[in-house]
Computed example of a mutant assay.
Amino acid sequence: MYTYLLFIHIISAVTAICAVIGYPLIMSSVRTAGQARFGLALLEKMAILPKAGGTLLLLTGLALGFLQTYLFHQMWYVVSIAIFFVILVILAILLPSGIKEQLALLQQTQGEALPDEYRRSRRRSAWLEGIANLAVFISNMLMVFKPI
């Protein structure tokens, strides 16, 4: 059972991480309002990946902990779960609200030039995406090397 849960856990992590890494890659090439609308629509569709992968990741991670209860006493395990919740807040709450705000700003835009308000909102989202990527990196490091 442990091996199967671990397999699902790893696949879930890959699914969720691909989306987290993909967000800034998609939006970094946006230069016009039309491209931004398309990119944001794509991000809205991709949002299912971190939600589904993250849910499975949390459930399988906790199940692994219940199968081997000593994990709840390991600092790397507890810190990884805490970091997961930081990532969850960013991906499930903060970024979607930023995407909605950016889409609303683009709906008011005529022409292909990106408005300054959009650029400010996009910088905030890019900053959050960077934090999420750093958190994913740290979480992966903790799970692989189990340093503490």
Rank of each mutant, 00 (worst) to 15 (best):
Q107S: 14
L42M: 08
I93M: 08
Y23M: 08
W76Y: 12
A52Q: 06
F38G: 06
I26P: 01
P147S: 05
L6W: 04
W127Q: 06
M143A: 09
E112C: 01
Q108S: 12
G53P: 13
P147T: 04
G98V: 05
V78H: 00
V14P: 14
L42A: 08
L59Q: 00
A16G: 13
I17C: 14
L57Q: 03
I148G: 15
I90P: 10
V86W: 08
I81S: 02
M27H: 05
A52R: 01
S12C: 01
Q68N: 12
T55E: 02
R120I: 13
R31I: 02
S12L: 00
V89K: 14
A16C: 15
A16Y: 05
L43A: 11
V78A: 04
V30M: 09
I83K: 01
L64I: 05
Q74C: 07
L128A: 14
Q74P: 04
A47L: 12
V78T: 06
V89C: 15
F66H: 01
A36L: 01
I10T: 01
I10R: 00
L134H: 10
Q102C: 13
S80N: 05
L58D: 00
G130Y: 13
K146P: 14
K45N: 12
R31P: 05
A36E: 00
P50A: 09
L114V: 07
L64Q: 03
S28K: 06
A41K: 14
T3Y: 00
W76L: 03
T69F: 11
C18F: 13
L142E: 00
V136M: 13
I83T: 02
T69G: 11
M141T: 15
L142N: 01
V136K: 02
E117K: 13
R124Q: 14
L62Q: 05
T109A: 09
A126N: 12
L40Q: 06
A47P: 08
I11P: 05
L42D: 02
K146N: 15
L95P: 03
L57P: 01
V144Q: 10
Q102G: 10
P115C: 06
G22H: 07
P24K: 06
Q74K: 07
Q68W: 01
P96H: 08
R122I: 02
F145G: 07
A13F: 07
S121G: 13
Y23A: 06
T55N: 03
E44H: 10
E44R: 12
L62E: 05
L25V: 12
R120Y: 09
A13W: 02
M141P: 04
S97Q: 13
G54D: 10
M46R: 04
T109I: 03
I87Q: 04
S12M: 01
N140T: 15
S125T: 10
I83V: 11
I83R: 00
T55F: 04
I26S: 00
E44I: 09
F137V: 15
Y4W: 11
M75G: 10
M143L: 15
S125G: 08
G39S: 11
